[in-house]
Design a protein around this nucleic acid. Sequence first.
DNA 1: TTCCTTGCAAACGATTTGCATTGGA
DNA 2: TCCAATGCAAATCGTTTGCAAGGAA
Lengths: 152, 152
Amino acid sequence: MPSSSLDRPSSLDRQVQRRLRERGVRYTTGRRALVAALTAVDGPRSAAELHELLQPAMPLSSLYRSLSVLQDAGVVAPHHGAKGITRYEMAEWFAGHHHHLVCVECGSVDDVEIPTDLEARLRVLIDQVASAAAFEPLDHSLEISGRCERCS
Amino acid sequence: MPSSSLDRPSSLDRQVQRRLRERGVRYTTGRRALVAALTAVDGPRSAAELHELLQPAMPLSSLYRSLSVLQDAGVVAPHHGAKGITRYEMAEWFAGHHHHLVCVECGSVDDVEIPTDLEARLRVLIDQVASAAAFEPLDHSLEISGRCERCS
DNA sequence: TTCCTTGCAAACGATTTGCATTGGA
DNA sequence: TCCAATGCAAATCGTTTGCAAGGAA
């Protein structure tokens, strides 16, 4: 099996721990497992998906509570998808800036990065349209919807 | 009051009617009111928001059912937002291709259009990243999150 | 007459919360 | 020891559905 953040404190773990400590909350075994699971996958995952991914199992209520804490601390970020399902992924300061491929069939979401030159253009453009609308931009995400490899 | 599609059949109404007829469903008074309401606003609206917008009031169950019919017919399109709330807007063949400004405070969503030259670049880029991921792109949307004018 | 549509109430499913217990610093 | 975290069950809330009544073609 691959070594996980459960083995010994990684740089990521120390960063997360610091962020949680600042907010007076603990970085418990369950939360470590959650962060490890989200770090190991390539796109956002729902509470239900994480539930059956985690070993040993964590009750859904604890899972939701931990996700909420991690989100407040800026460790994970939510993605809102079809059927009212929220999926979570590591925040961009850890996962890097990326965009999403959303499958219209199965609802799966994968990460993609786009070339820096277009990313730069995008940022310039966003500042322009946002200021025209008196909107203060904080983040952006390009959602590409379509059919994923498995569903086509 | 402004003249609405309830007065006499507009070009939009005829288009919608044709699409619904093709599917063997009726373009009823309630559905007309729904389309009129969605046409009159500048961004996606949730079932609850439409519920209190519509006069006379339509039960939420009928509202959801009509939205479902209109969505299947490609007349309206869903947008999935925070708190698991789905908002609906006129499909792009009517509203035109656009992107979204999503407020992280109040959850409101506004439409924006971006210059055609960047839109063209975006399309080229999307085809590139999608084919690299064996993904068949059908649509895309740039989500700009931040603080809207009222919340800043 | 034949289906589609509507309204109401009940059902559903994802997420949240109250409360008593457990556990880490 | 003290306060946060956990587990369970019950509650919430957006959304869906069963069923009987109403309406358009």
